[in-house]
Design a protein around this nucleic acid. Sequence first.
RNA 1: GGCGCAUUAGUCUAGUUGGCCUAGGACGCCGCCCUCUCAAGGCGGAGAUCGCGGGUUCGAAUCCCGCAUGCGCUACCA
Length: 504
Amino acid sequence: MLSLFPSPPFKRPLSRGPERERGGCALRLRFAPSPTGYLHVGGARTALYNWLLARQSGGSFILRIEDTDLSRSTEEAIEAILRDLRWLGLEWDEGPDAGGDHWPYRQTGRMALYHDAARRLLEGGHAYRCFCSPEELKERRERALQEGRAPMYDRRCLSLAEEEVRRLAKKGRPYALRFKVPEGETVVRDAIRGEITFHNREIEDFVLLRSDGTPTYNLAVVVDDVEMRVSHVVRGDDHLSNTPKQLLLYRALGAEAPAFAHLPMIVGQDGKPLSKRHGDVSVGHYRETGFLPEAMVNFLALLGWSLDDSTTIIDRETLVAGFSLERVTSKPAVWDTDKLYWLNSQYIMAHGDGELAEAVAPFLAREGLIAEDDGEALDKLRRAAPLIRERIKVLSDAVPLLAFLFREVETEAEARELLRGEENREVLREAGKRLLELELFDTGSIESLLRAMAEEMGLKPRKAFQPIRVALTGSKISPPLFESMELLGREKCLQRIARALDQG
RNA sequence: GGCGCAUUAGUCUAGUUGGCCUAGGACGCCGCCCUCUCAAGGCGGAGAUCGCGGGUUCGAAUCCCGCAUGCGCUACCA
């Protein structure tokens, strides 16, 4: 494997980049989403790996919005992406709302930079004007495809005489600017995949500037990475084929190229790139379902990377210290929701009572069970935390489990039978009677009381307790009964038992 | 069509310079125990001819060649 990314701690100083002047090996990394939708879990993983490398090296994590596709970019998408990144705890040092020395951090505000670079490329003989219309080009490529030829641009505008170019331009004929791909081969050194050689003759003269003057991805990304002094480009696998083009651009612009690392894709169980077809792929969805950001980060980190041969639960600190691109696999990672759920439950179990109560509260509030900032409810939740900690995999699981504490119950259809029949009714009557006389209404007292009752009635514990559970919670499934009763309080317990008897 | 990348159990992966791998850990699955429901926990189990075929070697998941399959790129998308 290449040594571009020495494993931590970085023993060797990087051989390139302005960071050396600052005396360290502080890396400059960026995450550059295009705001055409929510933050996808694949994007989140890319952001995470960049963030980890930045934090680990004491460097900078830059957020740059690639919004040159005007028709698909939206403000809402930008907001959503920032929100989700923040939720994951991936704070950026420079970005659209964070300042930095390379402002602005949205490509639409950086047009002058791209045009300047384009002009330099044109003047340096690295680019030329192309007057072919998109329609013509489309037709030609379709024909090429049909005839089994490579559908590459045929360079016909490269040989246009100078005065012809001038004449067409003067007539106002729209043109795009194309890069003139030189002969030879281009070697990409990738930290994950090693050295990959591309033959330049396989690379077409790609467009730099569209006829409307906007830059294409390849130009913009290179100009920005140069200007922002990005030292390491860590991005999705789908950009590997673009890398030689960008390398060529760096060279033509006289700039030193950053180091590259291309992460394997995240795919569904069927091996196809993860998409809506496979279920939920937005980070926002997982936040709303009640996954914890720590669990999400842990899970994302493990998608294509491992700390060692046996560690699965890894906290953020350990991730920062132990992450290394050398341990990233080059094989696509399959999104495994089951494992995410399990990991999340592990993090929930590690939460303290107060922590868990606060995490769960918004989910109950969302269902209208408690008010946003109800101190009393929060206190009750804190006391309920031990009862649900091992029973929920996601925070929203707490809603059905705890609803009975905050509103009157409606008995689930499949549980009603447990309130019927003489034996069950007798249990309820007897329990009501005995609970009324109980001195201290706490878990221990309730338990001994009800166990004694069951024994005297000659009933198995299960047989005696289920009707009570259903009467109090409306469900056959609930947190432990005696603890739940203490939390509910004597009054409500008696009320609900009485009501159950009435209804039955 | 061309170019590129990938290929260890259902899944995430370990396997860094070939022997310690009769392939390790985790999720999931199955069984038992615990038990007031549901979980959690404990114990045990099944599951991988390391994509296929050649080769190099005393010895290959690990090196080489071919093939297959999948995916990506091949846009005036990013």
